[in-house]
């Protein structure tokens, strides 16, 4: 039984999105998907571009989607990225040029095989990460205005989004590792002239387990100039199991 919350997200993403993410191409792909790799290697990703209902909730994050008449635009320019048979879908939007959400698409009922029939699982948000505030580079020296999307490319099968934010030329690469529950986000500034800042919502910061460079000040990562051409953020998407009760 899919909970109400998951019903909502199914509507938001639409069944077709989910099925395309997690069912390998049916009858229209000449080769079978490549095998899922071992832990430290990126997973084979399925990349789709599509229009999604706007699921953002934060006022500052929604600002980019406001029409002149005050109504909200959908995420018409979204990329959905997921590992074949994986559990998490990444949603990167080219209008805001940012990762706007990470969705856990596994219904909670599947997590609780022992639950009695008809039992309602605890409703919880399907969003492991949900964009809040302004884009992460906002506040860095050289940024102004809205980020502007240029395009994307595939680096060894991994999507790398290319955009400008003010005077910064940004490359943002996303991929999943392990069993698909480790998210890697790589930022690189082309020909950097200054250090830069990456600001994350508090809920995202809680899931960040590693950064390749920089120094934290609250939820802001300060990346020095010498590392501005590559900083990799590692997120743990799966919740840590609750500690077992001991007698």
């Amino acid at each position: 039984m899919i909970s109400k919350r998951y019903g909502t997200i199914l509507c938001m993403l639409s069944m077709s999105v989910l099925s395309q993410l997690y069912v390998s191409a049916q009858g229209d792909t000449p080769k079978a998907p490549e095998a899922v790799s071992s832990h430290s290697v990126p997973l084979v990703l399925d990349i789709s571009r599509r229009s999604l209902k706007n699921f953002l909730q934060d006022e500052a994050a929604l600002e980019r989607y406001l029409r002149p008449d005050g109504s909200l635009k959908d995420l018409e320019d979204a990329f959905t990225i997921g590992a074949v048979r994986g559990r998490y879908a990444l949603i990167w939007d080219a209008t805001a040029c940012r990762l706007v959400g990470v969705v856990d698409v596994k219904p909670p009922s599947e997590e609780r095989p022992g639950a009695p029939p008809g039992a309602n699982p605890e409703p919880s948000s399907p969003y492991v990460l949900l964009a809040e505030g302004y884009p992460p580079l906002s506040g860095s020296l050289g940024t102004f205005g809205h980020p502007g999307y240029f395009g994307f490319r595939l680096i060894d099968g991994l999507p790398e989004f290319l955009y400008t934010h003010g005077g910064l030329q940004v490359e943002e690469r996303l991929w999943l590792e392990g069993d698909g529950s480790v998210l890697k986000q790589r930022f690189a500034i082309r020909s950097p002239e200054n250090p830069f800042l990456l600001h994350f919502p508090a809920s995202w910061k809680q899931r960040i387990v590693e950064t390749s460079a920089g120094k934290w000040n609250g939820e802001t990562l300060s990346v020095p100039l010498e590392n501005a051409e590559e900083v990799i953020i590692t997120y743990r998407l799966a919740d840590e199991p609750a500690p077992e009760e001991t007698n």
Binding site: Q20, A25, D28, P30, D46, I47, S48, R49, R50, L154
Partner: peptide, 29 residues
């Protein structure tokens, strides 16, 4: 294709399909 993936196909001079292959696995909208 219907998923928005680009492909390339080869035909005989009479347009019988010889084979095809995806040119991109990215699904474009």
């Amino acid at each position: 294709n219907k998923r928005g993936q680009a492909g390339v196909a080869k035909f005989s001079p009479g347009l019988s399909l010889i084979g095809w292959e995806l040119y991109s696995k990215v699904k474009l909208n």
